[in-house]
């Protein structure tokens, strides 16, 4: 397993958001995390690269405990890419600089290597002509595709997607999902928090249904979507799939 999560708990003050989650992801696996708002699915994702400090529990990356004091989280994060709901492109940098900043600053690539990588990735997300564009000149869908390219520039072993299409206009969602599908088909290991049930069903190997900070039900897409067993899952799916 690339990532193992053992009894992960997270609370914000009095509020318990995650109440002991134990799960993991294998290389090449694509896991979609679904559930009602406020169930803790984004917090779960953000704990994996310690964007959120966990309250208790253990997270292992390639067998190494990344919650221990000795672990340099910056080194781990190089291998775990993250894509945010609101893109968070760096507005003072061009598309190319957004993508090359981290690999060059971390001395993983030379400027030229990083530039070649940026060109290759932009080609892959269908934005080859936007190399020297400023982020504010891009549409939401284009921004998110650049954000994916930026995360890919570090050659991560896992990608974490935190509701990547939730802030997009409906007509922009498709282009981002296409890019993610292409990544999935290329064997990328992915954790995806999403409300796009159709996409989750099509792309994911496994579905985690999180409710009230616990993995309430999990299984293959057909198990969870077509034959949900537990009442809360049935209720949730009946509401979101009716649309």
């Amino acid at each position: 397993m690339i990532i193992e999560v053992e009894n992960l708990k997270k609370s914000f003050g009095e509020l318990n958001v995650l109440n002991g989650i134990t799960t993991g992801i294998n290389k090449g696996e694509r896991i979609a995390v679904i559930g009602p708002s406020g169930s803790g699915k984004s917090t779960f994702l953000r704990c994996i690269n310690r964007m959120e400090e966990l309250t208790s529990g253990i997270i292992k990356f390639n067998g190494e405990d990344i919650t221990s004091q000795d672990c340099d989280i910056n080194l781990i994060r190089r291998h775990i890419g993250m894509v945010f709901q609101h893109f968070y492109l760096f507005p003072h940098l061009t598309v190319q600089q957004n993508i090359t900043l981290a690999p060059v600053q971390l001395k993983i690539m030379s400027q030229n290597e990083a530039l070649d990588k940026a060109k290759y990735l932009l080609e892959r997300v269908g934005l080859a002509d936007k190399l020297n564009e400023w982020p504010d000149k891009l549409s939401g869908g284009q921004k998110q595709r650049v954000a994916i390219a930026r995360a890919m520039a570090m050659n991560p072993e896992v990608l974490l997607f935190d509701e990547p299409t939730s802030a997009l206009d409906p007509e922009m969602i498709g282009e981002v999902l296409d890019v993610m599908k292409e990544l999935a088909n290329s064997g990328m290991t992915m954790y995806l928090v999403t409300h796009e049930m159709g996409f989750a069903k099509e792309v994911a190997d496994r579905i985690l249904f999180i409710n009230q900070g616990e993995i309430y039900e999990e299984g293959t897409p057909s198990e969870v979507f077509d034959n949900p067993k537990k009442p809360r899952t049935i209720e949730f799916l009946s509401k979101v799939l009716r649309r």
């Binding site: 910056n74 890419g81 945010f84 600053q105 971390l106 570090m154």
Partner: peptide, 10 residues
């Protein structure tokens, strides 16, 4: 912005 930068390992 800080989170995006940190998530890249910076």
């Amino acid at each position: 912005q800080m989170e995006a930068a940190r998530s890249l390992g910076l």
